[in-house]
Structure formats: C-alpha cells, structure tokens
Write a protein that binds this DNA or RNA. Structure first.
Lengths: 252, 252
DNA sequence: GTGGCAAAATTGTCCGACAGTCCGATTATC
DNA sequence: GATAATCGGACTGTCGGACAATTTTGCCAC
C-alpha cells in the first residue's frame, strides 16, 4: 500500500516477438481499411516472403487475427479473408472475461438496469417488422417452454438479444450481448427456485413486446425496468445463495 | 433480404483443425477453474506430448488463448501462465469490432448516455480514496493540457475510465471501456472545432468530480448526464461532418 | 459459356534444428 | 554462513524442409 511511487526513468522495453508484430501490422491494415472486408489474404507462403519470415511465424500471427475475428474463412473455402468481427464472437470473449473475474449478481444487475431499458426504448422507436417478429417469437417460445428450464432460460436470453438487436444501435447491442451469457446461469437457478418467476417473466415480456410493437418508447422502457427489477427480487428471494459469484462453482 | 428461412436439419460439421480443438480444451479447463489463475502452463513440448501433436500445432493453439487474454506471461518470464483477461485488453477488441462496423456518433452517444451516468452514480456511492484521486488527477490533467488536443482528449478518456473504475462494478467498467476508444476520434474533431467545448468539459468534470468526492450520487448522475448531452450538442455544432461514421476515413 | 479434368497452389500437420534466454543448482567469494 | 559468480539444462522463438488432403486454377472439349 504505502510503497514509494517514483516515476521510472526507463520504460521496460518489451520486445514483441515477430508473430505479434506481424499480427499488429496486418491488424492496422485492416482497421485502416487498406485491407477491406471480404478481401482475400495472400497465401501464407506469400506473406512469409513479404515479411521475410518463416511460414510458421506467419501462421502464429494469423491465428491471432483469426481469434480476434478479423480474419476468417467462408465455409468450405481455403483462403482466409478479411472479416468483420461478429458481435456474438466478440461478446463471448467479454463474458468469459467477466466470468473469470467473478462478477456478482448485483454487478450484472446494475449493468442490465443501465442498458436494457434504454435498448427497449430505442427498440420501440426503431424496430423493423422482422425484428419485432423475432422478439415476439422469443416471447412465445418462453411461454411454450416454461416447463423446460433450459429452454425457458434460453428463450429469455433470446428475448433480450432481440430487444437489443431491435434497438438499431450496434453499440448497445454489443454492450448487451455479454450480459446474456452471464445472466443464463443466475437465471437458471432463480427460475427453478422461485415459483412465481416464470409467470412474472411472461407477463413482463408480453408488456414489453406490446409496447415495442405499438412503438411506445416510454412504456417499453418502463416495463423493461420493472422486468429487470423483478430479477433482483427473484434473486433475493432465492436467497439461499451459497456465494456471491455468478459463476457456477468449479470443482476442487 | 427476402430469402427463405428454413431451420437446417443438420448443422454443417466444421472439422475444427487440431489447433482449434486443443485451444478449446485448454480454454474449458481454464473457465472450469481446473486450471487456476496464476498456474503455469506445461511447456510446449510437454503439451505436444500430452496431446500427441507437434509443437507447432500446440503453439498455434496457444496463440489463440494468448490473444484472448487467458494466457499470458509476467514480464521477463518465459513460461506462460493462466491469466485473467484484463478489461482493457478485452475492450480494445470490442471497440475495434465496433469501429469496423461503422458505428455512428449517435449510436456511441446513446450508449454513453446509458452507461456513464449510472457509472457516475455508483462511483459517488462507492469510490475509494485512491479511485477518487486518479479521477481528480485526470480532471486536473485536462485543465493543464487544454491546449494540446491530443493530451486533452486522452485526459477526457482517462476521466471516464476513472469514473467507471470507481463505480465498483466490473461489468459497467468493462462495458464502458470500449466506448472510450470510439470517443477519442470523435472528440478530437469536436474539441478542435467547437471553441466552447473545452471550457464546458472542464466545468462538467469539476462538478462530477465534486459530486463523487462528496458522495452525492444523484448529483453525480445528473451532471454526468449533462456532460454527455453536451457532447451531442458539440457534435451537432461541429456539423460540417462529412459522414456519419466515427471512423477516420481510410485512404483509398 | 459451360462442364469437366488435370496440374499447381495452399493449408494443416509433422520433423528436426539452433540461437538466445531464463532457471536452478553448483561453486567461488567475502 | 550468506552472497555472488558460474554453468548446464530446459524452453521459447524462429527457421528450413516435407507431405497428404483439398482447393483453386488453367485448359480443353463441347
């Protein structure tokens, strides 16, 4: 705590290995749009020649970009091409990170309170018919599958995803996505232990979907707020929670 | 657009290459906490032996996990160890994704409106003295560097980061982080063209910092709202914007 | 232009090698 | 006895070459 803070005279020079440097160079080309989405990447041997390194090195660099979702290949194709990172892919990384950081339910809930109502509000204003439909379908699916916990939880997640997608705001959408994967385990426990949860969720989804359907922004927002608030009450009711972490306990 | 949507009967089996399979296996071990944070990974040759593949293959798998931030090495060390993905690292991936998706300023702004005020509110309630200090420092830095656009913008970003960090909510923090990298370019343009921007930013930061200092949640939230709203006005004033995309135009 | 086919190119994986460096143990020094 | 210098082993980063499987391409016939 009380250690002396002295401005270091020299910054630690971190020598990036070649594969990382190469990855960075290519990445910059992509974000600078010098390589455009859909463009095929030169062959590995070609890249190796251009960068003056071995093919193995190139491959390691490429792996890096591939996992970032900046490179990918269309099914059945061999050549890599520049790809736009899909929200789903990116968000899964975020939620994995959050899970490893042992976020509490309260943290998740607060974030949901911040994002979901706003998303619902904009969704009411901007949803397309198609978006409305997937949203309604998710609601219907929940109603149909109430009995099957796994399915029901998946439907809830889909509902939130649909709302976010309908918001017509990519930033909100991608901000919301990671919350879903965190919500699932918590919701699963809750929905099993709190009897009235299912009914309340169904009712709320109905109201929200209606509001979005009839383009009532304020209502959509308000109902979504109530909906999320309910989650917190449900979680408190569940109350026999062993720990604070959302994360399902790993084995010793 | 109007293409038929039929639920496929069979999912296309994509034969994951070995390096991907291996990456998945190790990743699952990590999220299941069977490999715990800080644990050193076996040597590449050892892993190659265990998985029964060549070291090159192992290396490609490892690259994948390394870029996800699940593996890393402490400076100057050679062996990889299991790491917790840092918010910054993860968020940079998200904002790169968003940048490639050509988010508009409005989208960014709406997301900021959703997240930042809430973060400020919780920050007022929960900030530690240290967090308050870094926050105040960022504000001071802005004041000091108003003349230098680059520095000033960096200070603004730092301010937001500090607020989010002080919120004591990891989910909010990690949700907020990507917004910063998107904000920077937009803010840079704005701050240069709208004369009164700097003064207003400074005033707002002062108010927000004060509210957080004296633990006034509502004030913190309200002032942050005003602050963000100002950005939108600034952006409208700037108005000679060539396109909607935040992204600085890439060359042909 | 279309279809079909063989050749060339490309990817995934393997093997072996070597310099540079980090780590741990051993030995030398105060 | 504690600390500092030294040495060998273990690893990583990178390289070169190789090969099967599969995709892409060029070409020819229709």
């Amino acid at each position: 705590m009380g250690q002396e803070i002295v401005a270091d005279l020299f910054a630690p020079l971190d020598d990036h290995p070649a594969y990382r440097q190469i990855a960075n160079v290519i990445e910059q080309r992509i974000v600078a749009r010098s390589l455009r989405t859909g463009d095929p990447l030169p062959s590995e041997m070609d890249l190796a020649r251009q960068f003056g390194v071995n093919r193995s090195t190139i491959r390691e660099a490429i792996r890096e970009l591939e996992t970032h979702g900046l490179l990918g290949r269309v099914r059945g194709e061999k050549r890599l091409r520049v790809t736009r990172p899909e929200p789903r892919r990116v968000s899964s990384g975020v939620s994995r990170a959050l899970a490893l950081h042992d976020v509490t339910f309260l943290e998740l809930w607060e974030a949901m309170m911040a994002i979901e109502p706003v998303a619902a509000q904009y969704a009411a204003a901007r949803r397309t018919p198609a978006q409305l439909q997937t949203l309604v379908r998710a609601g219907a699916r929940f109603k149909r599958e109430v009995a099957d916990t796994t399915q029901a939880v998946a439907a809830v997640v889909d509902f939130f995803t649909a709302v976010a997608a309908a918001s017509g705001n990519q930033v909100l959408e991608i901000s919301q996505a990671p919350l879903n994967l965190l919500l699932a385990p918590a919701l699963t426990r809750m929905i099993d232990r709190v009897p009235q949860a299912r009914a309340r969720i169904h009712a709320a989804q109905d109201k929200i979907a209606d509001a979005i359907k009839f383009r009532r922004s304020e209502q959509a927002r308000t109902w979504m707020e109530k909906h999320i608030r309910d989650f917190k009450r449900g979680h408190e009711l569940e109350s026999i929670h062993t720990g604070d972490s959302i994360h399902t306990e790993g084995e010793r």
